[in-house]
Design a protein around this nucleic acid. Structure first.
Lengths: 170, 170
DNA sequence: GTCCTGGCTGAACAATCTGATCGGTTCCGG
DNA sequence: CCGGAACCGATCAGATTGTTCAGCCAGGAC
């Protein structure tokens, strides 16, 4: 059912880990996502060689999420974001999660502490669409109850910079 | 308080939008985040010029989140992820959200429908750390109640591919 | 029918960057 | 004192970039 990689990620395990230099490298990349290795090495005061090696390690070592992560649903026309908490018949967790995975508008499913509760992030083009998706979720065998909360505003947009800066100084 | 860009994002407004060709381009990029423009143009059967123009438009047009988004907290040593819902004295929403923004471990703050409820994603190195952060959140003036839920497992890791594929075909 | 605009193409250019591979250095733990 | 690991500086041919050109074509405006 799950590939090794998926299990690895699914368990929220730790990954190789990055040091202060890596953090600085990533900060530089944050400012210019498509910066060349040359530019990065100059910014960081490291040899091109070093930067190249570190980048390769990071990119292949599982420290980075796939590129998709940078895509804003709004850009694809999905103007609504909602968080649905789903209560599940305990024994059907796997079944429900694959059912959720089959809905394209489901962006993320996270298992929360508490008994068999899932946090599901979904997007929709409009209210009707969201309704349709909610029904799809409810229709999954094993789902007991859902609670849909519309995202009205982003007060803090997803960020890592503060933690990265801390890591860069350490 | 907020720059134009932050307001723009904060309101969850729509962005320029991407067409089927853009979607295909982004899919190709998902498979190889650091693919060269040359490689992309060959994959897509488009002129290098075209790809370059589209990429520039996407990158500068707000369709993409910053690079940080690809960074996995686990890689930085934050092994725990939690979602905290925060009930706020209605008049203090702005105050609370800036208070939350001051905590580095707060990755994201989203205003949910329902009265003055915030969904806060935080990360922590261990349980003690999470406790400390929870207290910090509770200490913010205007916070009425918090409910912390630990993320135990990712059933569906954040993804956009299904929606991208749909957009690529349309 | 004609004009204009916008997007795509193919081509060219010099300048830069890449990937790969040297040997040499420095530092740390065994 | 001896690896081993990480970094450095340097070299190479070959690929890629940014930029700018003119031509082409479809669709909308007049």
């Amino acid at each position: 059912m799950f590939s090794q990689d998926q299990v690895w990620r699914g368990t929220l395990s730790s990954v190789p880990g990055i040091d202060a230099t890596d953090a600085r490298l990533l900060l530089a990349l944050s400012e210019d996502p498509r910066a060349t290795v040359m530019a990065l090495s100059q910014t960081l005061g490291l040899a091109r060689n070093t930067v190249q090696a570190r980048l390769a390690r990071l990119e292949s070592g599982g420290a980075l999420d796939p590129f998709e992560r940078r895509l804003r649903p709004e850009a694809l026309g999905y103007r609504l974001t909602a968080y649905i908490t789903v209560t599940v018949v305990q024994t059907s967790l796997a079944e429900v999660s694959t059912g959720l995975a089959d809905i394209p508008e489901v962006l993320e499913v996270i298992g929360l502490s508490g008994v068999a509760d899932l946090l599901v992030q979904v997007v929709a083009v409009d209210a009707d669409d969201l309704w349709r998706i909610s029904e799809q979720v409810l229709a999954i065998p094993g789902v007991q109850r859902t609670d849909t909360n519309l995202a009205l505003r982003r007060f803090v947009d997803h960020r890592m910079a503060p933690l990265l800066k801390r890591a860069a100084e350490a």
